[in-house]
């Protein structure tokens, strides 16, 4: 099940989007997310859809793969939709049964919320799908570098993030193995109330922590052996350099944000209640 979550996964392909500087992708993703939240009209969402479709096409990541990321939030999505649908009381009542009623405003809000959430997930998965975890941490490190002045250990934090990304799949696999081994010794990890289940996880968690510490220790040794002495004096194999395509991408996304905002706000275009 855990393997099916695509958020945070990288999909190797050779596309315009893949080749972009990670900083561009991080900043543009943020811009896109902001544009979604200041959006409140059908036309604005249509423009966002066209924009997203264009980027997905340019990324060469199969649509099926991107959609998979949504599985992880399906519960959250349903929850938001239901809450908005029944709890918003705004405008004419469309449906009424027992103590529930759906208003025009509620329907509109829940549809827009759902679209927003879905686009938000697709947008951020697109970033992680097209950027290697390392490039991503490099990008974050570079964007956060100004914080160095405030004694925030930016390089160290970035290094920790990239190591975590490397070891998460390994530790997941290890968890699976330990769980199987304890089940083979008769452990019951599935039944009982929350307290019992938490207690039943001890035989899984203790070995997992022991192993994580052992790995951390080994890794620290291996890094030292390869002359790692912290961020100072290091060079980069893949330094971040803005190229023409990156400026183009910035310009393109900025244009989208402006157009979507202006058109969405000022061009009256409505279908039914939306």
């Amino acid at each position: 099940m855990i393997r099916e979550i695509t958020i945070g996964q990288y999909y190797p392909a050779d596309s315009f989007i893949h080749r972009l500087d990670p900083r561009v992708k991080i900043v543009c993703t943020l811009l896109f997310l902001i544009s979604l939240f200041i959006q409140n009209s059908l036309l604005g969402y249509l423009i966002a859809t066209v924009f997203l479709a264009f980027v997905i096409h340019a990324s060469k990541v199969p649509f099926k793969f991107i959609i998979k990321g949504l599985k992880a939030i399906i519960l959250l999505l349903m929850f938001t939709v239901v809450m908005n649908l029944f709890l918003t009381k705004d405008g004419a009542v469309l449906v009424r049964f027992w103590i529930f009623q759906i208003t025009e405003g509620g329907l509109k809000l829940s549809v827009f919320m759902a679209v927003r959430l879905i686009y938000l997930i697709i947008g951020s998965s697109l970033m992680t799908l097209t950027t290697t975890p390392n490039a991503l941490t490099d990008g974050i490190e570079s964007l956060l570098r100004p914080l160095n002045k405030f004694r925030v250990p930016v390089h160290e934090v970035a290094m920790i993030m990239s190591i975590a990304l490397r070891f998460i799949p390994i530790l997941l696999e290890e968890t699976d193995k330990i769980m199987k081994a304890q089940i083979a010794r008769g452990a019951d990890l599935e039944s009982g109330n929350i307290l019992q289940r938490t207690k039943a996880m001890v035989p899984v968690l203790v070995p997992l922590f022991v192993s994580a510490f052992r790995r951390a220790n080994d890794l620290a040794l291996a890094m030292e052996a390869r002359c790692y002495f912290g961020g100072e004096g290091r060079t980069k194999m893949k330094p971040l350099l803005y190229r023409r395509q990156d400026y183009l991408a910035y310009a393109f996304v900025a244009a989208y944000v402006v157009v979507a905002f202006v058109v969405g706000r000022f061009v009256p275009f409505h279908i039914w209640i939306f």
């Binding site: 990288y10 975890p133 990239s162 190591i163 490397r166 080994d218 890794l219 060079t235 980069k236 893949k238």
Partner: peptide, 17 residues
Amino acid sequence: NQIIGTVVEEDVGFGPE
């Protein structure tokens, strides 16, 4: 426990970096 990079070539580049 000794591979630091999440991509093969980046790991090989770690020492020279």
